[in-house]
Amino acid sequence: MIQLRHISKYYPVGFGKNEILKDIDLRIFEGEFVSIMGPSGSGKSTLLHIMGLLEEPNQGEYLFDGEPVHKMNEKKRTQLHRGAIGFVFQAYHLIDELTVYENIETPLLYKNVPAAERKSRVADILDRFNIVAKKDLFPSQLSGGQQQLVGIARALVGEPKVILADEPTGNLHSDQAKEIMELFKQLNEKDKITIVQVTHSEVNAGYGHRIIQIRDGKIA
């Protein structure tokens, strides 16, 4: 599914460079649930961003579903964004001006899904996450856990193959975190969605099949 070969990422600092990732080789298979762990500044978020096409590596190759992403143009990347990848963020990043319903609907708008289908898909997701009653509320009217639930719903509505989650429970207390992790597990098992999460918590990491430790830009 995701194949990284000799990926390096660095920022220029003065005359030298600050290396974030050093020659990473990583393979994630379809249907896997992978947790990336490591201390602050070890490069785990950068790795996730590279997988999610939010950032470009300075060196190395990236194959998504066997296709070389590093050779794709802007248009194809956008299509990958729309179709294959869903994001979940620590800070939720819901759009404040839109209601729950509209937030979930937005990715479908960008995919040019017809109105009727959009309606039924958003309704399905709302139903499944038990947030139908909240569909007309704005993000500021929800608790953190509920906001993250909406965030996941929004990531899922586009029916992605992979969900990339950057500390999805970082801002939540443990009960809520557990709920979210259970949801991920269920999505992975029932819906066969590949999940890659970055986390600090050993407990959360334990939900995954595999834990990748990153230290000083290298897989330990």
Partner: peptide, 16 residues
């Protein structure tokens, strides 16, 4: 800015 970034992550193209 947050809204704009999120929209991009959700697959909005520049023209959109």
């Amino acid at each position: 800015a947050g809204e704009i970034g999120m929209r991009k992550a959700l697959g909005a193209r520049k023209t959109q």
